[in-house]
Design a binder for these strands. Sequence first.
DNA 1: TTGTTTATCGCAAATCCATGCAACAACGGT
DNA 2: ACCGTTGTTGCATGGATTTGCGATAAACAA
Lengths: 142, 142
Amino acid sequence: MSGHETAVARLRSEGYRMTPQRLSVLDIVANRPGHIGADEVWNLAKEQHPYVDLATIYRTLQLLKRLGVVTEVVIGNKLHFELSDHQTRHNHMVCSDCYSVQTLSPAYLAEFSQRLQQEFGFTPDLDNITIGGVCSICHPPG
Amino acid sequence: MSGHETAVARLRSEGYRMTPQRLSVLDIVANRPGHIGADEVWNLAKEQHPYVDLATIYRTLQLLKRLGVVTEVVIGNKLHFELSDHQTRHNHMVCSDCYSVQTLSPAYLAEFSQRLQQEFGFTPDLDNITIGGVCSICHPPG
DNA sequence: TTGTTTATCGCAAATCCATGCAACAACGGT
DNA sequence: ACCGTTGTTGCATGGATTTGCGATAAACAA
């Protein structure tokens, strides 16, 4: 039972309604250390609300992402989500070979982001950027 | 009829076979200024080979991407592709509101990329990184 | 040219995610 | 506590992309 109040307030203040389904999704993502796939969120949500539809899960996750409550991580061809904790904000590097995920301080992207903003007026969605590539194990130097 | 020989040689040297379908996809992407969607590649390919399957188009585009022959651009929920021209290499910024695409010199990402490589041994797939965000028109300052 | 190997293709089915719509329910007002 | 408005849901469907599999055809040797 952590910072749900903030998220709930965010929803209400923007004209959204708080439903049991949304609360459930929020709880599930918040209580999961690390990221979680949409299908897994669905499975857990069904334990509380047997009739929730997967479409509702997807819609809710996208909504929470738009509101900045959760962060999206692209792993292979699937989307994962985690709570956006402003205290421990980080980006993700995903290996396209082994699908391992490493976290990255947003400091690495700060200057890049600022240049895009200043020179192009483009505001990158930094939190939700997943950096694809090959990790050190799958692609050793030499 | 540009640098196809290079791509063909790349395929052969890596043990892949050159098929009419692959040549067709290569031609289509190469002759298109800018990026092109997979469905559009399919439509054009069917003019030459009426029986090509969409799955073949997708497989070929992914293969050419792995080989560095084409570059992937994520536009909304669709993938687009363009020829990887090492002379005019660039990245893409895509607005999540209006789906406009701006190009970006890879110089903006050079330092970032080097740091990931040096500090984590992570080799980002720079060419195929699409930077999502909100453009200056959709999100004016102030 | 012919034959052999095996990468590739076409087809069908599956996966992941998004969307249209009518029934439903959250929330503010009474 | 009830009502009305309208945002949300479940359901069904659709879109984009991937994958399994038997048939086909490149590539290469004889």
